[in-house]
Nucleic acid binder design. Structure first.
Lengths: 360, 360
DNA sequence: TTGAAAGCGCTAACAG
DNA sequence: CTGTTAGCGCTTTCAA
């Protein structure tokens, strides 16, 4: 092996990046003996070339190792048909949405350009790049809208925000009816006989405020206002673990806890189990997201489900409506979550303590 | 709010994608009263424009909402200075590498183009797209090299594979000395007094074969050939959970298990804990990757560490060497892992069973 | 069914 | 310091 296709070692060190030019459409055209424009036709599957020509074009392309140049296509085409995606890789549910975005985009005739938000590269810079790459619209997942000002002016790129952390005007939003999800969780626990139901919130994370409000409202609806306990947290395992340690240090545990998301629930569950607390016998736990984590056999977490595929499809559709159908009014799409009941919730143990009220 | 920047609602439905043309360099140039080329200079921070001109150019650009067009830059520039990244979002360690790739690329003057491998879009298609986007080189993470044939011919794009699943010629590889990692794990366990040390392998996943071989070799080196037990698995939590259930069904548990990666160890740990087995008192567990999972307080997994940042830096450097220094010979870069000792390993309980040998 | 020609928005080389 | 010129590789329109 070593050097297929080339007299090769004429590059020595000190010869930066002198690679053979990659073949262009004109090269293919020349080889077949047709015009370059016709080759373009063939590659775009447009009518107007004889079957024989098509065959010869493809064959020549193959022989030359020709590959269409996206930059040139993008530059010349009226539409890029690309959607930018701004996402984080650390939340399992967000990853699920990204994965679901691929088929959704394809269905609407779009292609995806990913851009991750990582610590060393803010949301803002990522958005900037996406816009430079001719994304016709940008879909953000769990972002903070801190780039709002970037997309002002005459050429406003449509933005669709999935589960945004903050609310912004002039964009489409696809989100979950968080209060309904939380209410289902509370209803489920109350139906099992729980009263002391605590909540670990998500601080400033996406949707955390609504989940917190939903929890309070649902508790009050059941006449359990006195049992409302909100423990500050975020969407990480360690915040769940920390709350677990706090709870363990107290005289009484609540009989049930609704975590801000699955990762937080995981930390709570793991820490409680380690301490010898049984789940759900001693404490019931509910997560949020119904991510892959929740479905693991040894975690088996009751969790509020938001369909990633549905969010993805609706987000792409919202973008397509602006782009292809000229919609200009903002859309606020709210999805109803459902509760996936699993093994982490069950009836509370009726304690034989003299004081009848738990965690009072 | 509703319609900032525009007389607005002249688009109605049925007017697909009629957005105002975005401003170009010429527009900026016209507004300032200089040539377009000069604006280009300014934006590239090249010498050759007066401070005053620069200021005015930037101001005009700001007012117009001008943003450089990447497609045009890419098309015209001799070099794209873009590196394609082919990755999966489901392995925590791989995500860590992607994150580390951003600063590494910037340091060498490159930009990253991400392309995820998801179920509905094979490795091959992802690689195809990356090449179309003018990536000067492609870095893959945990891939199978199934795209090998795509990059043949005269214009070979350099490929750097981080922790590949299969071995290929004509590419650079950055990988871990797996046998050393496993050996450290075995040494650590043996030093603690363990003899019955089992291994859950990773099937066809990246590096699994070498870890398996390394395990066998290390066990033999300690004269523990009779205790070699390889349980088939993969790199998911459920495979660890399944092995845990298998082990629990037997008379004797091994005193220690080395899992194929952290996710697998997590499944093993979680399932054993649920069954009332204590870790590390009854069973010690070692993971592999030292991912964020391993560091969680309630998991606290002894694990073989591979530095994501180091892999990322070396991969970018390998690409840069080919691109900027004309290297043509393949490189095989092997990193030494270290063992991060945490709470999931400890001395085995000396059992009071008449038979002195465990799991015989 | 095919071809010619005109650019997309920018960079790079040169000339003033 | 600034302007002119010539394309990058492709799509699009118009003619043949």
């Amino acid at each position: 092996m070593g050097d297929p296709g080339g007299t090769g070692s004429s590059d020595g060190p000190g010869t930066p990046a002198r690679r053979l030019k990659r073949p262009t459409m004109s090269d293919v055209a020349a080889r077949v003996g047709v015009s370059q424009a016709l080759v373009s036709l063939v590659f775009r599957n447009q009518p107007g070339a004889s079957p024989d020509t098509r065959r010869r074009v493809f064959q020549a392309a193959e022989e030359l190792g020709y590959r269409p140049d996206t930059a040139a296509q993008l530059l010349r085409r009226t539409r890029s048909r690309q959607l930018g995606v701004l996402f984080t890789m650390r939340q399992p549910h967000d990853v699920g949405i990204v994965e679901a975005l691929y088929p959704a985009a394809r269905k609407h005739g779009y292609t995806l350009v990913l851009n991750a938000m990582v610590a060393t590269r803010g949301e803002r810079q990522a958005m900037e790049e996406l816009l430079g790459l001719r994304s016709e619209a940008v879909i953000t997942i769990g972002a903070t809208s801190s780039w709002q000002h970037l997309t002002t002016g005459a050429t406003r790129t449509p933005i669709v925000e999935i589960n945004p952390r903050t609310r912004a005007a002039g964009v489409d939003v696809v989100r979950t009816a968080e209060h309904k999800g939380i209410r289902q969780a509370v209803d489920h626990l109350v139906a099992l006989g729980h009263r002391a139901i605590a909540h670990i919130d998500g601080g400033t994370m996406p949707a955390a405020a609504e989940r917190r409000r939903g929890y309070r409202a649902a508790m009050r609806r059941h006449g359990l206002a006195d049992h409302i306990r909100v423990h500050p947290g975020d969407y990480t395992e360690e915040s769940g673990a920390r709350v677990a340690r706090d709870l363990l240090a107290r005289a009484q545990l609540p009989t049930a806890v609704i975590a801000g998301n699955d990762r937080c629930a995981h930390g709570l569950l793991g820490t409680l189990l380690r301490a010898g607390v049984r789940v759900p016998e001693d404490v019931s736990i509910v997560g949020y997201d119904d991510s892959q984590l929740a479905r693991l056999s040894f975690i088996d977490l009751t969790s509020v489900r938001q369909e990633a595929a549905e969010s993805a499809e609706l987000a792409v559709r919202a973008a397509a409506e602006r782009l292809d159908e000229g919609r200009t009014a903002d859309r606020d799409i709210v999805l109803d979550p459902t509760l996936a009941v699993r093994g982490s919730t069950g009836p509370p143990r009726t304690r034989s303590t003299p004081d009848g009220d738990l965690l009072r």
